[in-house]
Design a protein around this nucleic acid. Sequence first.
DNA 1: TAGGCCCTGGACAACGTTGTCAGCTGAATG
DNA 2: CATTCAGCTGACAACGTTGTCCAGGGCCTA
Lengths: 372, 372
Amino acid sequence: MLDGTASGPSAAPLAGPPDRPHPTTGQRTVAETARHSETRYGNRPTMKDVAARAGVGLKTVSRVVNSEPGITPDTERRVQEAIEALGFRRNDSARVLRKGRTASIGLVLEDLADPFYGPLSRAVEEVARAHGALLINGSSAEDPEREQELVLALCARRVDGLIVIPAGDDHRYLEPEIKAGIATVFVDRPAGRIDADMVLSDSFGGAREGVAHLIAHGHRRIGFIGDQPRIHTATERLRGYHAAMADAGTTVEDSWVSLGSTDPDRVRAAAEQMLSGPEPVTALFAGNNRVTVTAVRVLAEQERRVALVGFDDIELADLLGITVISQDAAAVGRTAAEHLFRRLDGADHAPARVELPTTLIQRGSGELPPAS
Amino acid sequence: MLDGTASGPSAAPLAGPPDRPHPTTGQRTVAETARHSETRYGNRPTMKDVAARAGVGLKTVSRVVNSEPGITPDTERRVQEAIEALGFRRNDSARVLRKGRTASIGLVLEDLADPFYGPLSRAVEEVARAHGALLINGSSAEDPEREQELVLALCARRVDGLIVIPAGDDHRYLEPEIKAGIATVFVDRPAGRIDADMVLSDSFGGAREGVAHLIAHGHRRIGFIGDQPRIHTATERLRGYHAAMADAGTTVEDSWVSLGSTDPDRVRAAAEQMLSGPEPVTALFAGNNRVTVTAVRVLAEQERRVALVGFDDIELADLLGITVISQDAAAVGRTAAEHLFRRLDGADHAPARVELPTTLIQRGSGELPPAS
DNA sequence: TAGGCCCTGGACAACGTTGTCAGCTGAATG
DNA sequence: CATTCAGCTGACAACGTTGTCCAGGGCCTA
């Protein structure tokens, strides 16, 4: 891939053959200088160059760069000038190699573009920043294989820690990594077949509350449209749905439940099916934000007024009057990141499972009575 | 913490098998054992360990790991077994140091949580992934200093390339980095005082079209609420507004224009002010997605029906009937990333400036006639 | 004035990987 | 049978930084 051999992107400044710029001219010193100052793949000055220019030792430059004590103001000034003049910037790759810590953490989520993950990753980033760490980010696109590939790539980079929103349900591949010291926190969904820290939202409780809310407003025929059953939150929410229905003594008909991809076409088909026929549902519970969005579109086209409660809040949901079960994505991200850094700071208690509560926000769509 | 770099006299001569401590020196045995068996910060096996276990040379392991040709199937199997048994994973930090390329690119944007940047960074990530590169991500929070800090941190990591959504207006600090070979593409807003690649949306043209649309529907008193004038897109959009108004021969009153933070409170105040008084505006042009959201809220509370066109599309805007100037965030990100990788692949033409067109999407709010 | 101590700076060896080059085997060829 | 050749393998030196240890030199104290 990027593995291109030595030849850098800059073709112009290369005077001689790339492998051995050994000019035949008598000006050996010039050639020497040229090689020193402008070869090297990225053509960047190193501490050695700075040291030479400032007339000090290599380690002295290192000391200045790291603000270590024991440097004469005069020496420091000379070194700073050389750094300035050469445009030197410390190579953190080398530093990392030497020190063992990369000051970066990896975040693997499902889709950076999903509005639920924006605030989450922003929150993680803020915490990381407060700890002086950078964030390396990747989307699994809900593909377990891609998740593993990403996670292992991050491990190879030797990130200090990982925050993973799992796509797969078997994370034993992470065992050696965790044992080797890469702190890991799972978020939003539990880790599979492995004992690890996790931070979750109360999917079961939230869904149960949302469905109970519909029941309290008189509904019995309630449809549930959720994500693929492979996804833990999807089944948890379905479980919540069933629990609430059972609490109300209602028998759930198969045709009321649809699990599968959140692709708008599928969701639309599922919703339209539930809403048609002799005994249509009078209310819908949408299993996540994407489903909610499509559901809102479908319901807007219906003649009857159908009640709706969605899991996850949505921007502008207040204007559209959509009742939702809200989970605080930023809080989830922040909690996970703080947990991670506590681990990195040495906490070594047993893996913890944190569950954050959800909130029912009434905005109208969930309070509609059943339309006959 | 674990910085067990105990060095001391490196007693193990390369000749002897590393896994067997020499019993010759009685006193040093303890330290030796400790060092060998359990130190090393992350305590991870290295190629050396794998080589020892497989009974082959270090370089052979490297060959296997990199699928280089010329390895006997039998040797390969032995090495693979050792890798498996030890849970070895190549340390990419060291690899990077040796090879000079990090196979990662940096993306500095304004706010990961902003719905405009989600699709953008997802698009960048997809392209990066196709090129085998990872994405390091940071938010500048619209703070020039923080932008610089982030960018330079990424340069220190030696990312191969940078995609920057500028917060500041002076990027000369990047000159040495670019010269040193870090390809850079500026996105959404132009680079300041520096010649570089950039990918922009046609803010001027888009705003002009949007305002002209309102004018075509009979409006003359049109308010403009935009972001801080420091931000290039904000002033470009304002310029588009003025151009459209001038085209229509309308004189813009000062009270119709408000630039400043996109904080909801400020936007709300600005909107309410324009909508009150003896001669209120009959239409609003919102300078970006955040402004639009607040404007929609304010307008929903008004008695009169006020027309609205917003810059940037918004999720569910179709349901709310909001007319917008849409810019394709994913296309912007994709274009920028492709440009970047073309640079990394050796393209060395003069810095290019790409401007992507915007689209007017009519949904109702922009087609309302002026209310008297 | 001599001895010791701090203060500054430099030489050197890691960190874990890859590129280079030379050595070793076994087989094929004269 | 000797010789070449090719295919494998390993020793070694980088990459750029930091930790350790030691050497001067100046200054203070006895």
